[in-house]
Design a protein around this nucleic acid. Structure first.
Lengths: 235, 235
DNA sequence: GAACATACATACCGTAGGTATGTCTATGTC
DNA sequence: GACATAGACATACCTACGGTATGTATGTTC
């Protein structure tokens, strides 16, 4: 049975990664935390550096060899630390992978959001551009290996979607906005978002495995264009 | 590094499963094989029964606990045999899972094909019915665990699609036929098939995890209906 | 019925995830 | 500024599990 995580055992939760990056930016901290933050600087920095090394090593090996074929010893070797350090910052292999996955999702989100926001006037066209960005970003073999091939089995569907705002949720929001503004016909947004997100994920894998990825990508984008136009009522 | 499989070591390949089922049906066999087939009947039957037990046990455990959490010892215990028997018929855990996956795909194919063929006149409507059948069949948690969550990571994308005719290929053929017969606008069939197959897979997982799967399924089908109509030019 | 192949069972090995413990250094406290 | 404490690791070890090597009994063939 899968080891259940209680709500209280987050003491071993890694301070590095996404959470630390956002929390550390806040200068307005309470008195005790402020002094502790200044005094605990060197230890904190060293810790963060170790977490960073571990995440970088893990990301490289997970991307190259996959989740199952990557040993924690190999990760530690590459990071230049021992398993003691790894297990001090992460509760196990699964959580290490979850942290790597969350980072990957953040990078994807950034690219998608940037493309999405570039189209300010047309909400449906914005979803198209976001979808295009997601498809193109997912062509990277490392991204595919981590987010599309290994994550579902290693983390499970629920955990995948609970690790922060993911690409599927971005798609959902975009679809909802397009419906609200009348860019496409009224409908339940969830199903369309699932179809788009899942379809683009599968497309990315098919494109890379194609004997001619260049034209396969072009055809996928053309097909996406046709689908978006059809859903918008343009013929 | 992942153990590389040479092209010559298929001596341990299981005679059971799909391959045997199709090969055994051919009555027109060469002389030596014909006599050997008749004389070797009892051993063959025992062997097939063992393979069947192993596949049934593996399917049950893989479906319930997932690929990684299922130990071969547990499979053997449930099947009532030892690891010697398992490794006599399968080259390892991955191939055992591959056999289970292939069976699952066959069952899905049967359901999809049946729904597809029920609509003889309208090729695009046939694709819809096939898609509907695939979505509904993929609501089963065991099917999801095996074919959607674990298979990509355990087998890899290529191996998944080389294990016989799968649902994605069925979708592709249906789309190609619909295009040939002018049911939808001309386009490259591959991208649309990928979008449909991947989208339906993701939809199935989202539907099951929804707080109200009943209405989620209804909404997904309604959304699918809208998409199919839009692609067919019906507004 | 002898030679052989098939179909297993048993015993064993190596790897890798996980744990328990020791140690060193930074940090807060008096 | 000595001391207690806790964080940040390193080291050694345990164990489960995938895989292998070998033994054996039951068909199967000539």
């Amino acid at each position: 049975m899968a080891a259940p995580r209680t709500a209280t055992d987050d003491g071993a939760r890694p301070s590095g990664g996404r959470a630390a990056a956002t929390v550390r930016g806040t200068a307005a901290a309470p008195s005790r935390a402020a002094t502790a933050g200044a005094a605990g600087r060197r230890q904190r920095e060293r810790s963060d550096a170790t977490v960073e090394d571990l995440l970088a090593a893990a990301r490289a090996l997970f991307a190259a060899d996959g989740y199952a074929a990557t040993s924690l010893d190999a990760v530690c070797d590459r990071a230049g630390v021992t398993k003691g350090a790894l297990y001090h910052h992460f509760s196990g292999k699964q959580q290490l992978f979850a942290a790597v996955y969350a980072r990957e999702q953040d990078l994807l989100n950034a690219r998608i959001s940037a493309a999405y926001r570039e189209v300010a006037d047309d909400p449906w066209e914005a979803v198209y551009e976001g979808s295009r960005a997601y498809l193109e970003a997912s062509l990277d073999p490392g991204v595919q290996r981590i987010t599309l091939l290994d994550a579902p089995g290693a983390l499970g569907w629920e955990a995948m979607h609970e690790l922060g705002v993911n690409c599927r949720e971005l798609t959902l929001r975009g679809v909802e906005r397009a419906i609200r503004r009348g860019a496409i016909a009224p409908r339940a947004a969830e199903p369309l978002a699932s179809m788009l997100y899942g379809g683009l994920s599968e497309s990315a894998m098919a494109v890379v495995r194609s004997e001619d990825p260049e034209t396969a990508l072009a055809e996928s984008l053309a097909g996406l264009r046709l689908m978006f136009d059809a859903l918008a009522g343009k013929d």
